[in-house]
């Protein structure tokens, strides 16, 4: 049965993204110049390069891009860079230690080359296993860290985290 629902996507040729003098993303669309726009992913985890919403600075939606790949390479790079800023997720590459003290948990982690100590409380809420074995850790300050696939990190690391997975 045809539901009659159709999502409107912006034609690739109609828009041209550019960097403005201050380094923010701008957009020319249908002869209009939006000097600053922001990008939103509709499915940030499962489809990070598809269904990108473009909004102006008042959060009003201007257009929806069906797929980044349809753009030419320089435009793709621009879009990816901008999305990278908004959707920056510190990716935990190693867990050095997990210590418990009075109901708080102290994790020593590596985010790339950067080592940091974070404190986590309320384990069941703040170490969250999402679908596809994705793990999101939220520390006491509200900062979030991502382990894209908890079973892809080293066995030793996994052992350390296992008691806290719910």
């Amino acid at each position: 049965m045809e539901s009659g629902l159709r999502m409107e996507f912006v034609p690739v040729g109609a828009c041209r993204f550019y960097r403005n003098a201050r380094g923010f993303l701008g957009l020319e669309l249908d002869g209009r110049d939006y000097r600053r726009v922001s990008l939103r992913r509709a499915l940030p985890f499962t489809a990070p390069e598809r269904y990108i919403c473009v909004a102006d600075m008042e959060d009003k939606e201007i257009a929806v891009i069906e797929s980044i790949e349809a753009f030419d390479e320089s435009q793709q790079a621009l879009l990816r860079e901008e999305l990278g800023i908004r959707y920056f997720y510190p990716v935990v590459t190693a867990v050095k230690s997990v210590k418990e003290k009075m109901g708080s948990y102290y994790l020593q982690i590596s985010v790339g080359a950067h080592e940091m100590n974070i404190a986590v409380k309320d384990i069941s809420k703040n170490i969250r296993q999402m679908e596809a074995n994705r793990l999101i850790v939220t520390d006491v300050d509200g900062n979030r860290y991502l382990i894209p696939d908890v079973y892809a990190i080293s066995k030793k690391n996994l052992r350390m985290l296992e008691p806290y997975l719910y």
């Binding site: 003098a21 201050r22 380094g23 923010f24 600053r36 940030p44 800023i85 908004r86 959707y87 920056f88 997720y89 510190p90 520390d139 300050d141 509200g142 900062n143 979030r144 860290y145």
Partner: peptide, 27 residues
Amino acid sequence: RYVTTGRLIAVQGGDDVPLARFSIGLC
């Protein structure tokens, strides 16, 4: 505010000028 980070911006002559990014917990 972004997803896990934020950005400090100065408005200079009506223009947004980015100064620094930071982890969202520092908001």
